[in-house]
Simulated scan of single mutants.
Amino acid sequence: MRIRMKVTMSGTRNGEDWPPAGETVDLPTGEAQHLVASGIAKEVDGVPEVETATAPDTAEKRESRVRKAAAKKPDTK
């Protein structure tokens, strides 16, 4: 069962650190239900997480504007 941690827990589970708050983990159903019932985690439905795009870097925007401006200027040599 996949759950999303609501809190960051200290310690380890089977030698691995618990995921931080907001991250997901797959656990056996009984263990996951126990964490959900105690308010430490919430069940994640079967919908996969969506990766979102980010805005271009401002340096890229600036470079694009400079190239466009240079292309518009007539050569006066």
Rank of each mutant, 00 (worst) to 15 (best):
M1K: 02
M1S: 05
R2H: 12
R2G: 12
R4N: 04
R4L: 03
M5Y: 00
M5L: 09
K6P: 05
K6C: 09
K6L: 10
V7A: 12
V7K: 14
V7T: 15
T8K: 01
M9S: 12
S10E: 09
G11P: 05
T12A: 13
T12I: 09
R13C: 07
N14W: 14
N14I: 12
E16L: 04
E16H: 00
W18K: 00
W18N: 02
P20C: 03
P20K: 07
A21I: 09
A21D: 13
A21L: 05
A21C: 13
A21V: 02
A21T: 08
G22I: 01
G22R: 02
G22P: 01
G22Q: 09
E23K: 08
E23F: 12
T24V: 15
T24Q: 14
V25S: 06
V25E: 10
V25N: 04
D26L: 15
D26Q: 14
D26E: 15
L27Q: 04
P28L: 07
P28M: 06
T29V: 10
T29A: 14
E31I: 12
E31D: 11
E31C: 12
A32F: 00
H34V: 13
H34I: 11
H34E: 15
L35R: 01
L35W: 01
L35I: 01
V36F: 06
V36D: 02
V36E: 06
V36Y: 03
S38M: 12
S38V: 12
S38I: 08
G39F: 01
G39E: 09
I40T: 12
I40H: 10
I40Q: 11
I40G: 03
A41H: 00
A41L: 00
K42A: 02
K42P: 00
E43K: 07
E43V: 08
V44N: 02
D45W: 08
D45T: 10
D45H: 08
V47K: 10
P48L: 01
P48W: 07
E49I: 09
E49M: 05
V50F: 04
V50E: 09
E51I: 03
E51Q: 07
T52C: 10
T54F: 06
T54P: 00
T54Q: 11
A55V: 01
A55I: 01
P56G: 04
P56M: 01
D57L: 08
T58Q: 10
T58F: 15
A59C: 09
E60R: 07
E60F: 15
E60Y: 13
K61P: 06
K61Y: 11
R62F: 03
R62E: 08
R62V: 00
R62T: 05
R62K: 12
E63N: 13
E63L: 15
S64C: 06
S64H: 03
R65F: 05
V66N: 01
V66M: 03
R67T: 07
A69S: 02
A70H: 14
A70V: 05
K72Q: 07
K72V: 03
K72M: 03
K72R: 05
K72L: 04
K73A: 15
P74R: 04
P74C: 00
P74I: 02
P74Y: 04
P74K: 02
P74G: 12
D75Y: 14
D75V: 07
T76A: 13
K77Y: 15
K77D: 15
